[in-house]
Amino acid sequence: MKYSNYTLEILENNDVPQIILLKAFARYAFDSEDISQLADSTYNIDNGMNDVRAIFPPETNSIAFICRYERDIDKVDKLVKGFSLGWCDFCRAVRQQRK
C-alpha cells in the first residue's frame, strides 16, 4: 500500500477532533456511513472496499491516506484537496515529501 501525496493537517485553533473530520471525509469522498478502526491502527473509510485507509500519524495533528493501488493515489489527492476547501476553517491539504 502506498501513501497518497496529500494529508489533511488539522488547524491549531480547531475544536473538531480528528475522528470527526475523518468521518466527514469518508462521507464526502466515499459516501461512507461509518468508519472502522482495523487491528493495525488504520481506519477503513471507503465504505468497505478496503482500497483506501486513513491513519493518524504519531506526533502530528493530521490525517494521512493509504491507497491499496497506486492508480488510486491521484483520485485520493483530489478528494483530499476538495474536502479541505469545504472544511477550510478546520483543516488544510498539505503535500507530503515522500522518499
Rank of each mutant, 00 (worst) to 15 (best):
I66T: 06
N47I: 02
S32T: 05
D77S: 11
D72G: 01
F25E: 10
R98E: 12
V52L: 03
S41I: 01
V76R: 05
C88M: 04
A29H: 02
A26I: 06
G48S: 01
D15P: 04
R92I: 08
R95Y: 05
T60I: 02
M49F: 12
K2A: 09
G86K: 13
P58A: 04
N44K: 08
A54H: 10
F30E: 04
L79Q: 15
L38C: 11
R27G: 06
F65R: 09
A64Q: 13
D15V: 09
C88A: 09
Y28W: 12
R92T: 13
N44L: 08
C91R: 03
G48C: 02
D89W: 04
I19G: 00
L11N: 01
F56I: 07
Q97D: 14
P58V: 06
Q37S: 07
S36F: 04
G86F: 13
G82H: 11
I19H: 00
L22N: 04
D15E: 14
K23C: 10
L85W: 01
K99P: 15
S84T: 06
D74Q: 14
Q97A: 11
L21A: 02
I73N: 05
L8W: 06
D72R: 04
N44S: 14
A39Q: 10
N13W: 01
R53L: 11
S62W: 00
D46S: 10
D46M: 12
N14R: 03
A54G: 10
Y28L: 12
V16Y: 03
T60F: 03
I55G: 02
S4K: 07
Y28T: 11
